[in-house]
């Protein structure tokens, strides 16, 4: 028996600006079911962080409970991580972000974790515009607890046990758009050509970035009655636009041949490049994005790609005018200036 991944790697493996190969961004070998979409998401995160030359120890991986929430174990071994209570990742991420705004926050949640038990938490973290990447691995079921239908599952679809989804499904992208998220996208775990650039763009976005990732559960929701199976998604997926991040010094050539591209200049001179596969799509109009999503759903299609981007938004720290130095770097005196300062504050209210 082997379940161990060899440390050997391809002798020609490239290194990034930090001199690291993508293998340096891996996590432990996954214990999820073989073929789980979530593993493909982990590997897309690995690739995106490697390509962006992010220092792994400057990342915090935040998650709740579920197979999807287990996934952070399987990427970025050297990053910080917190596996919170079911559905409570947004609160814990908010606390962590308040204490140390210098880290890159990657939240990994599931459709159960975010659209059921954590629905309130999800809504408020979007409103709060926390500077983070929030990913939901959307498989239409509660994978970890053996396949009960999730609130995102399409009305009428059946899970493996034959149970039918009777209620209206929740579309987390639509919700995020309504609640003011400044980067909203949907992708598919089985399409890394789209997913990796989207994750890179989302990580580079300063503000709240949300990606809903259709991620088939091979064990409990990959049967023909599912609308989240590999076959169903491969057949029904359609893409509007893809965002990619272009660092200041690099000029990348697009892998997407058709359509046209549009560059948005960010404050540091780097670019957010939007490749539109269909030029009708706008990525600057949240209301229009909602209409597009719903229209495709009516046609039986799953619309993926970048829906909405507001490049010059302000995020939680800016809105609250918080301290530039992260709280965890302030010394005791600054954090807790003592009764003399408190008396001063109290007096100001008298």
């Amino acid at each position: 028996m082997s379940f161990e991944k060899s440390k050997f790697h391809h002798p020609r493996l490239a290194v990034n600006d930090l001199g690291l190969t993508y293998r340096d961004y891996e996590g432990s070998l996954s214990t999820l079911c073989a073929g789980c979409g979530h593993d493909a998401i982990s590997s897309a995160v690995v690739q995106a962080c490697y390509e962006l030359s992010i220092e792994p120890h400057k990342v915090a991986k935040m998650s709740g409970i579920g197979c999807s929430s287990k996934s952070p174990t399987y990427f970025l071994n050297k990053a910080h991580g917190f596996n919170s209570v079911h559905g409570r990742m947004p609160s814990v991420a908010t606390g962590a972000n308040l204490a140390n705004r210098d880290l890159t926050y990657i939240g990994m949640s599931g459709d159960g974790d975010s659209a059921s038990i954590g629905m309130g938490q999800f809504a408020h973290v979007v409103r709060r515009q926390l500077d983070m990447l929030y990913m939901v691995a959307n498989n239409g079921v509660y994978g970890l607890t053996k396949g009960q239908l999730a609130a995102t599952s399409d009305k009428g679809a059946k899970n493996k046990a034959g149970e039918q989804s009777l209620f209206t499904d929740i579309d987390l992208c639509v919700m995020a758009l309504q609640l003011g998220a400044t980067f909203v996208a949907r992708s598919f775990s089985g399409d890394k050509k789209q997913l990796v650039p989207l994750i890179k763009a989302a990580l580079s976005h300063q503000g709240f970035a949300f990606i809903d990732i259709v991620s088939p559960c091979v064990t409990f929701n990959n049967q023909p009655t599912s609308t989240r199976s590999y076959d169903y998604v491969h057949e029904h997926v359609t893409t509007a636009a893809i965002a990619d991040y272009v660092p200041v010094k690099k000029e990348i050539t697009s892998e997407v041949a058709d359509g046209e591209s549009e560059d948005i200049c960010l404050h540091d001179g780097s670019l957010m490049r939007i490749h539109k596969l269909d030029k009708k799509y706008q990525t600057t109009d949240a209301m229009q994005a909602i209409v597009d999503i719903e229209r495709h759903k009516k046609q039986g299609e799953i619309l993926t790609g970048l829906f909405y981007l507001e490049p010059t938004c302000s995020h939680f720290h800016e809105m609250n005018n918080t301290n530039d130095t992260p709280l965890n770097k302030l010394n005791q005196d600054a954090l807790c200036p003592g009764s003399r300062v408190l008396t001063g504050i109290n007096n100001s209210f008298r």
Partner: peptide
């Protein structure tokens, strides 16, 4: 599903 592509160490 790309599981094999993702896991292959080489």
């Amino acid at each position: 599903c790309s599981a094999c592509e993702d896991v292959c160490p080489m």
